[in-house]
Design a protein around this nucleic acid. Structure first.
Lengths: 379, 379
DNA sequence: CTGTTAGCGCCTTCAT
DNA sequence: ATGAAGGCGCTAACAG
């Protein structure tokens, strides 16, 4: 295997292939590569026909319906027939065609989930929860991210409904009119998870961003901090951020404190962003003694910056975060934050969909999974 | 809105709902909640019939095929007919049924991806890359995680093939015999992404774990470290970890250094785990002057532990990580690591599948996307 | 350019 | 407990 050291730039050393580079393999082992070439665009059966239910039926000398029943309502068959059929299925390697099954039964076993960003670990917890419950029920998850765009969400909802998903989990709680219309027309159950909205399209499973932000602010005040800064993501197209900001303001009002614009910043997500926000705020409002970072990894970025500048946390400035990311309990000092039931939100959302699909009433239609304040050394 | 402070334990303050608690909403706003109850198990059309292509055809006074063409091969229709049909589609709110389309055309627009863990941010990059490219091509992503289990992977492959996915992206490069058989029988294109395997089932898009680990070890030696420790995940059921360990050993051999068991640890993933591994290793082999953490977030955990103990990095011990997680460039000191093209792997995998589905040859069948060594302050 | 016919693979309904 | 007929909503193939 040839090694190629291509460049050393900015501390980066490129190796083996690198962007655009393709290392062809000429070894004997590689030439053994098993490759199937057949199949035109997306063809399911490239060369040989796929095994169908009727093939199983013939091989087992029963009718097609008996095979169908062996697979879907095994208890309706006699023990012997069932065994015969299932053995045959295994023997000839039959894999049911859910596409055909869905079409014939007007039933689907696929649920769609749309999150703002697949890469954000917050959402991946809710995805995981959802996927787990669905799989337990023999269903599958169709996933996509909207990139925080309403229009993209609409397009995805359209695509998912075209795919005839039997339910939808949406993180966003704001939708385009057409998206709402599509959902209504499809008549499928929907769960919104991003915030505990007052009037969900169908069902909501979440916590209250407003309450979470408010309580954290009150908690900080309770710890004796007099001048509490607040940093969040842009509220413009983000209902969650907006609710958090409202919660912060509500807390100030409850405390009888005045709003101070110098103590509020809206920023982009990311570690760097959190660092800048902290530094900026401390310049503009030197009296600030605690900052509540109500978004993403902002708090972590701020803490790292404090380490770099040798600012003592919490003595010089206290830092609180929003989500309980894994690292928050490992930093020095450990970070105070909210613990939000992301995984559970995913699980309960899927469960709510399943319930609804079984025609069971889902109460309440708004499920508040709450939150915790995790007090650690940074405050 | 009532506030409930339920408990204060271990620094945790539970609020609003909490585990198992459900806050029912009795406000007027909540009672306005729009709810659709209809639909038996997974029914796509709960109450009213969904609009079908034939309905559009009747409304536009054309044949069903004309509607089909307006949607799928618009260029084959006259401008007027096309406009008429598409307007009608919009007017009556028709959403194509891809399920039926797939069945009739023996074509699918869904690709399946199986990763070891949805929550792991490493995989989410590859998921994102894949999802983006697919969406650009009008396709969807069916996602699931195997929990690092071969058997689970097999079950998922079965389920995905039942779903008639038109292609599969697998992170694992080791599969059960039945999984391989299922894939072969399905005759769909497959990409394996976890390692640059010698003989992929079909195609491989990745980097070489062996080379990456080897080069990093050589790089550390080049920086003057004499006693380089190696920490990775359990190699037992993890080919990637095994390859990395091999790479480390290969580097030692190339350097003419002897293997020292005290300098090698296999551990679980996680920050805590990395911290322990470092402490253990430094006790058992006090001469160690650099540790290469070849997995997950181990290096970060170790660094935090070093901060806590006031061990200078890299003076007391140098630390290098594997993946270039976002935080690595923000810690104090910043962490040296490998930069692996996770996103690009996802993108290229999807592209390879699309190519294969268009019947274009995919060369090479093993695509090496390489890696970079990012040198920072920790070494 | 547009329409007609015959299924895709399976499930629903009704019969035996 | 098992089977036969018809159709789910759409597209391929062929016709005009």
């Amino acid at each position: 295997m040839k090694k190629r050291v291509a460049a050393v730039e900015d501390g980066k050393i490129r190796l083996a292939g690198g962007p655009g580079g393709e290392v062809k393999t000429a070894s004997k082992a590689a030439s053994k590569t098993v490759r199937k070439t057949g199949g035109s665009v997306g063809k399911t059966r490239p060369g040989g026909q796929a095994v169908r239910m009727i093939d199983v039926a013939k091989a087992a000398n029963v009718s097609l319906m008996t095979v169908s029943r062996a697979l879907n309502e095994p208890e309706r068959l006699s023990k012997e027939t069932r065994k015969l059929v299932l053995d045959t299925v295994r023997r000839i390697g039959y894999v049911p065609n859910h596409i055909a099954s869905n079409l014939a039964s007007a039933r689907s076993n696929v649920v769609g989930q749309i999150v703002p960003s697949i890469q954000n670990s917050l959402y991946s917890h809710s995805i995981k929860g959802c996927a787990d419950v669905l799989r337990g029920a023999g269903m599958q998850l169709l996933l996509a991210d909207s990139g925080y765009s309403l229009e993209e969400e609409e397009a995805l909802i359209d695509a998912f409904i075209a795919q005839r998903v039997c339910g939808l989990v949406l993180h966003d709680t704001v939708h385009t009119p057409r998206a709402v219309q599509l959902i209504r027309a499809a008549g499928i159950p929907i769960v919104e998870t991003g915030d505990l909205v007052r009037a969900p399209l169908d069902m909501a499973v979440s916590y209250s961003n407003f309450n979470a932000a408010k309580e954290m602010t009150l908690y900080l005040a309770g710890r004796g901090y007099k001048s509490i800064g607040f940093v969040c993501l842009a509220t413009r197209n983000n209902m969650r951020a907006r609710e958090r900001l409202k919660g912060y303001h509500a807390a100030l009002a409850a405390l009888g404190r005045e709003r101070n614009p110098a103590l509020v910043r809206e920023v982009e997500g990311g570690l760097t962003s959190g660092a800048h926000a902290m530094v900026d705020m401390m310049q503009r409002a030197p009296e600030v003694d605690a900052i509540f970072f109500a978004g993403d990894v902002l708090a972590v970025g701020a803490l790292f910056e404090a380490q770099r500048r040798n600012w003592k946390v919490p003595e010089r400035v206290a830092i609180a975060g929003f989500d309980d990311l894994d690292i928050l309990r490992h930093t020095v000092p450990r970070l105070t934050c909210l613990n939000l039931p992301r995984l559970e939100i995913g699980r309960r959302s899927a469960e709510a969909l399943l319930q609804r699909m079984r025609n069971e009433p889902v109460e309440p239609a708004r499920l508040d999974l709450g939150f915790e304040i995790i007090q650690r050394e940074s405050t």
